[in-house]
């Protein structure tokens, strides 16, 4: 990393503190990127499709969450001011929104990508771009062109005590407390269950998997459902954490998540998590030590550098093209 420019003026002990603060923010943001990246990587692992529409499924999920919060207050008299109700409400959102995103993702796969399974790779890729445009337009008509404020429901109380020099709030904790268990559960699911095994088999060789009696279509559907659900969960957390939603957010976040997936080695689940964390850290440390306006460029410079030296990503194994 470039030498600390801004912190140079501050003494060393607080220099460390600042560094830790950036790292905390970076890891929290990174956990969010990772959650979206998982959806990219799982779909890619199975059908080798860069699903450009994934970020927009995520965007629609956060619009749904925003609409639900309003509707629950209006029609159910939900009191979003009371801690218990907030907890329960967020729990509800974390069920409904992922279900919606999973259903949306599966529908997209069935209607758009499935007929193209045998076509060369560019055809589904361009379709995915097309789906992304359509979903973005739906978001535009649904939420309007301007940024929308997402209610700030989670407390900003520090979990480290009010006097602590580091700031780590309940809100930050929420992100970690929801994303980490989801990632662990996903890993266990893919490693241990029958369906998870079928997914791995299909990713390795779909033809052989089919010959072994695996229903490849069902496995692909399940992968899209799972990826969509992860995006839905990420959408709820994103809304609660960043507090702004807009119809363009899917594109930007999708880009980062996709980068994270590639960085870690696309198709590789721990790789996507690692990639997300690296990008989160690169952004926050870049903002702190290089300059805010260079952060996005820095993410991509790191990406290019890593791919030049490790052409299959951080955790990807080097495979030769099959002949």
């Amino acid at each position: 990393m470039t030498p600390p420019l801004l912190v140079a003026a501050v003494d060393t002990s607080s220099g460390w503190q600042t560094f830790l603060q950036y790292a905390l923010i970076g890891l929290t943001n990174g956990a969010l990127f990772a959650l979206v990246a998982l959806g990219y990587t799982m779909v890619y692992g199975i059908i080798e499709l860069i699903n450009f529409a994934h970020g927009d499924v995520f965007m629609l999920g956060s619009f749904l969450a925003l609409a639900l919060i309003g509707a629950m207050a209006k029609y159910l008299g939900w009191n979003w001011g009371e801690p218990a109700m907030i907890g329960l409400g967020i729990g509800l959102l974390l069920v409904v929104v992922p279900l919606f995103c999973a259903a949306l993702n599966v529908t997209i796969d069935r209607v758009v990508y499935k007929p193209l399974r045998r076509a060369p790779k560019l055809a589904p890729l361009v379709s995915a771009i097309g789906v992304s445009f359509v979903l973005m337009n739906v978001g535009l008509l649904w939420g309007g062109a301007a940024d929308r404020h997402f209610p700030d429901l989670v407390s900003r109380q520090s979990v480290l005590g009010e006097t602590a020099a580091l700031s780590f709030t309940v809100k930050d904790l929420m992100v970690v407390a929801i994303t980490v268990p989801i990632m662990i559960a996903l890993t266990l699911f893919v490693k241990t269950t029958r369906l998870g095994k079928a997914m791995r088999a299909t990713a390795q060789d779909p033809l052989a998997a089919q010959l072994m009696g695996i229903n490849v279509d069902r496995v692909i559907g399940a992968t899209f459902a799972l990826g969509g659900a992860l995006a839905g969960a990420a959408a709820v957390i994103y809304g609660l954490y960043i507090n702004t939603v807009s119809y363009q957010m899917g594109f930007q976040n999708g880009l980062y998540a996709f980068t994270a997936a590639v960085l870690g080695g696309i198709g590789n689940i721990p790789g996507a998590v690692l990639g997300g964390l690296v990008i989160g850290l690169a952004r926050s440390l870049g903002s702190g030590y290089v300059g805010e306006r260079w952060t996005s460029a820095l993410v991509f410079v790191i990406l290019i550098a890593i791919l030049v030296f490790r052409p299959a990503g951080l955790l990807g194994s080097r495979t030769r093209d099959k002949v």
């Binding site: 890619y44 080798e48 860069i50 790779k121 880009l255 996709f258 980068t259 590639v262 696309i266 306006r293 260079w294 996005s296 460029a297 991509f300 410079v301 990406l303 290019i304 791919l307 030049v308 052409p311 299959a312 990503g313 093209d321």
Partner: peptide, 28 residues
């Protein structure tokens, strides 16, 4: 020169990344 040996989709993301880096460089 350094990136063309990458496999298809990795090359795609490198070119995408280069595009964004260029845009930010022009801007900054």
């Amino acid at each position: 020169a350094p990136t063309l040996r990458l496999r298809g989709d990795y090359l795609a993301i490198v070119t995408l990344g280069f595009g964004e880096v260029t845009r930010f460089t022009l801007r900054n």
